[in-house]
Structures are given as C-alpha cells and as structure tokens.
Amino acid sequence: MSEPTILHATFTARPGEGDRVAALLRDFAEAVRTEPGNVVFDATRVLDAPDSFFVYEEYVDEDAFRAHLANPAGGPFNAALQELIVEPSSVLTFLRRL
C-alpha cells in the first residue's frame, strides 16, 4: 500500500488583500474537495494574523496529488493567488505520518 501525500501550504496576503485571498481560497477548496483522491483540504486563516493563511492537504497517494496538480482549476487559482500574496508562491512543507 502506498503512502498518502500530506502537506501544508502557508502564504501571506498583501496588505488589504486578505478578504480577497480568503474568498479565492474558499472557492478553490470547494473544488479540490471534490477531486478523486483528496482526503482533506482544510483552508484556514490565522486568528492573530488575519493576512496569514494555512492550508492542510492530504491525498490518498502520490498519483492523487499529481492529479490534483494537473487539475485545470489549479492554474487560474495559483495565478490569481500569486498577485495577492507577499511570497512569490505558497510555501509548501511535505509531511509524513508517524
């Protein structure tokens, strides 16, 4: 049995763009949750830093994660997000369940 692919992404909205990032992320999360192989896509906003976002993702395996990356919705989401955040892109951290 293959390992799940687990990661988290962090990014920070540019000043004044937090609500736009939240709306964009909310819509994208709904789409990702319907993808075959997605287990969790939990998009959150940091309480004491509302321009900071934390997304926890889990896919059944590497193939499901690669399918997620190839999903046509990802390109427009990432292009729009890139214009609204401080970082050049989301900062991804891959995890392994113990």
Rank of each mutant, 00 (worst) to 15 (best):
R20Q: 13
A79Q: 07
D48R: 05
D61G: 01
D63N: 04
P36S: 05
E57K: 02
E35N: 10
R20G: 09
L81T: 01
L69N: 13
P15K: 00
P76S: 10
E30C: 12
V60P: 07
G16Y: 06
L25Y: 02
E35W: 08
A80N: 14
F77C: 03
L95K: 09
A31H: 10
Y56D: 08
H68M: 05
L69P: 06
F11K: 02
D48Y: 11
G37E: 12
Y59S: 00
F77I: 07
A67N: 00
T44P: 04
L92N: 15
V40T: 14
D63P: 03
R66C: 04
R66L: 15
R14D: 10
E17H: 10
D27K: 13
F53T: 07
L24Q: 04
F65T: 04
V39H: 00
D61A: 03
P50T: 01
F54S: 02
P72K: 06
E3P: 10
R14L: 15
I85L: 07
E30G: 07
S90D: 07
G74H: 09
F11M: 02
S89N: 13
V91P: 10
L24A: 07
R97G: 05
F11Y: 13
P15G: 06
S89P: 10
A67D: 03
D63C: 12
R97I: 00
A73V: 04
P36A: 10
T10L: 11
V86R: 03
E35Q: 09
F41W: 15
I85M: 09
V39E: 12
A23W: 13
D19K: 09
F94C: 11
D19G: 09
F65D: 08
F53G: 09
D27A: 04
S90E: 13
P4L: 08
A23C: 10
D19M: 10
L69H: 05
T10G: 15
E17F: 14
L84P: 07
A22T: 01
A73Q: 11
S89L: 07
A22W: 14
I6Y: 01
I6D: 02
M1W: 06
A31E: 15
G75N: 14
L24S: 04
E87K: 10
D48N: 15
R96L: 15
I6C: 06
R45P: 09
A79S: 12
L25E: 01
F28N: 05
D63Y: 00
A79C: 09
Q82D: 08
L84R: 14
R33L: 05
A49G: 07
A29N: 13
T5E: 11
A80E: 08
D63L: 06
L81K: 04
L92T: 03
S52R: 14
P76H: 03
V21F: 02
Y59G: 02
V91I: 08
R66G: 12
A31Q: 15
E30Q: 11
V40N: 11
D61S: 06
A43Y: 01
D51V: 09
R96A: 13
R45E: 05
E3T: 12
A73E: 10
L24H: 02
E58H: 00
E35R: 01
V91S: 05
P36F: 07
Q82K: 14
S52G: 03
G16P: 13
L7T: 09
A43K: 01
E62Y: 08
L95V: 09
F41C: 11
D61P: 13
L24G: 13
F28W: 09
D48W: 01
M1C: 08
A64E: 04
P36D: 03
A67I: 01
E30D: 15
